[in-house]
Design a protein around this nucleic acid. Structure first.
Lengths: 251, 251
DNA sequence: CTTGACAGCCTTGTATACAAGGCTGCGAGC
DNA sequence: GCTCGCAGCCTTGTATACAAGGCTGTCAAG
C-alpha cells in the first residue's frame, strides 16, 4: 500500500531518532521517493513538515539535510527543555497513581536496556521518558512540543556527546519519579532542571559544530576569508557525513 | 516580485492574528494562488507548514480551513501556555534592565491602544506581550513555540470570548512586569498563571464549539444519530463562517 | 409540496514535465 | 605539475495537467 505523507514523515523521523540516519545526512527527494514508492511530491511534503518541526533543513538546490544544530542552537534547545519540563512539574498539583506506575515501569525498562547493553534502543528510551512524562502529566500539545524538542536534543547528543552516561540519566529519571511519588513536585522540578543541565554539561559543545574547527586553529583567519564567503550555509555545516557510507540506510 | 512560500505563510498568519480572517474560514488554494500571483504549489506548501504549526487544517478534497479549536483543545492550549510561560519566569534568575524597559514600553503601548479604542490592533498587542516576553527572556525556539500557541489562543478568544477584557489583561501585564522589576520572579510566575487562568475563565467554552449546540438541546440525540455520522469532522465544525461575506478579504 | 437521485462543477490530491542552479570531473593553459 | 574554466550531470524549485471526490442545484417521482 502507498505510504501517506504522514507515514513518510514518521518513518524518517523515527529513523533519525533511532540513530539510523545521523545528523548531516543528505536526504535526496528522488531516492526517498523510490524507496517509499511514491512521487517526489509526497516526499517533499513530508520534508517540508519536518523542516517546520526543526528536524531537517533544505539547502537551496543542494538537498535536504538532517539538521546539525550549532552549539548555540544546542544551548537554546536545552534551555527550552528546562523551561518547559520544570514548568510542567511545577504546574502539576498531584500525580495520579497510574501515572506513577507507568513512569516507574518505563524507568525499569530503561535500566534493563542499559544492563543488556542495548545501545540502539537506549537513547530512544531515555528520550521517551520525557515524552512519556509530558503525555501523562500534560496534554497532547505539550507532548508534541516536547517530542520535537527531544528529537533535537537527541541529534545534538549524537553530534557532541563524547561519553555516554546512559546509566546516570536513567538514575536521574528514577530520582525524579521518586520525588513525584513523594508528592514533592518542586523537588522533582529541581531534579529535572539538574538532570537536563547535566546532560547538557556532558556535551562537548566546542567539538564538532563543524569538522573544520580543528583545522581552523592551524590556519590564519585571512586564509579562510578568501574561501569561506562562497559557502552559503548560515550556521551549520551541511556537508554530508560519511561519503564513504553511500548505502548506510537500508537499500 | 514573487512572494516566497515563507511570505505567504507569514501573510496568512498575520491576517488571521489580526482578525481579518476569522476561524473557520475556508482558504481556497486557487484563490490564494491568484491573490499572491503564484501557482497552487507554493500556496500548498505554505498551508502545509501552517497545518504543521496548528493554524490551519485540511479537510480532504474540501479545502483548507482556519482551525476552530474545540473546547478541549482550548483548555489544552491554555494549560500549555501556563506551563511554558510560568516555567520561563521561574527559570530566569534576573531580568536585565533593558528588557524591563522594553516590556514597560510595550505595556504603555497596550494601554494607549485600549484608551484610543483601537480594537483591531488591541488583540494583537495583548498577544504580542507574551511573545515579547519569551523573546526577551528566552530564546528563539521558545519564542516560536509561544508565538504559535498565542496564535491558537487568539483564535480561541475570537471563537469563545463573550466579553473583551482588554483593560484587565493589560493591567495584568503591568503587574507581571512590576513583579519582575521587584526581582520577585516567583510572584511574576504566579501572576502569569493567574493571568492566563483569567483569560481562560473569561471564555464561554460551552458556547460556540459548533453552531448546532443550541439546536442539539432542543432535539433528541437519536434524531441526530441518523444524520450526524456522515460528517467527517473529527472535532471542530468546519463550516465556513459568514457565507454572506463572500469578499471579506481584500479582493 | 416534499424528497430523493443524479449530473455537472469545483475543489483538492498526485504525478510529471520542465526550468534553474550547484557540483564534479576533465581538459586546456600557464 | 598545477590551476583555472567550462561542460555535463544531477539536484531541487515551480508550474501544470490530470485524477478523484465532494457539493450544489435541478429535475423527476411520489
Amino acid at each position: 500500500m502507498n505510504p501517506s505523507t504522514a507515514n513518510i514523515e514518521e518513518a524518517i523521523l523515527s529513523a533519525i531518532l533511532a540513530g539510523r540516519i545521523p545528523p548531516g545526512t543528505r536526504l535526496g527527494e528522488q531516492k526517498l521517493a523510490d524507496l517509499f514508492g511514491v512521487s517526489r511530491t509526497r516526499v517533499r511534503e513530508a520534508m517540508m513538515r519536518l523542516e517546520t518541526r526543526g528536524i531537517v533543513q533544505v539547502s537551496a538546490r543542494r538537498g535536504w539535510f538532517v539538521v546539525e544544530p550549532s552549539a548555540d542552537e544546542a544551548r537554546e534547545a536545552f534551555q527550552t527543555r528546562r523551561v518547559i519540563e520544570t514548568g510542567l512539574l511545577q504546574t502539576v498539583r498531584e500525580v495520579p497513581p497510574p501515572v506513577l506506575a507507568s513512569l516507574k515501569e518505563h524507568v525499569a525498562i530503561e535500566r534493563q536496556a542499559i544492563e543488556t547493553g542495548d545501545v540502539s534502543s537506549r537513547a530512544c528510551l531515555l528520550g521517551d521518558f520525557h515524552i512519556h512524562l509530558a503525555d501523562a502529566l500534560g496534554n497532547r500539545m505539550l507532548t508534541e512540543i516536547i517530542r520535537d524538542l527531544t528529537a533535537r536534543t537527541t541529534l545534538i547528543s549524537m553530534l557532541y556527546q563524547p561519553t555516554e552516561k546512559a546509566a546516570e540519566s536513567s538514575h536521574d529519571h528514577e530520582d525524579i519519579v521518586a520525588a513525584m511519588e513523594a508528592g514533592d513536585l518542586a523537588a522533582a522540578a529541581r531534579l529535572m532542571e539538574e538532570h537536563i543541565g547535566k546532560v547538557e554539561a556532558g556535551l562537548d559543545l566546542s567539538a564538532k559544530p563543524d569538522p573544520l574547527a580543528s583545522l581552523r586553529e592551524l590556519l590564519t583567519p585571512s586564509t579562510f576569508n578568501d574561501v569561506a564567503p562562497s559557502m552559503p550555509h548560515a550556521h551549520g555545516v551541511a556537508v554530508p557525513h560519511a561519503p564513504h557510507h553511500p548505502s548506510k540506510t537500508e537499500d
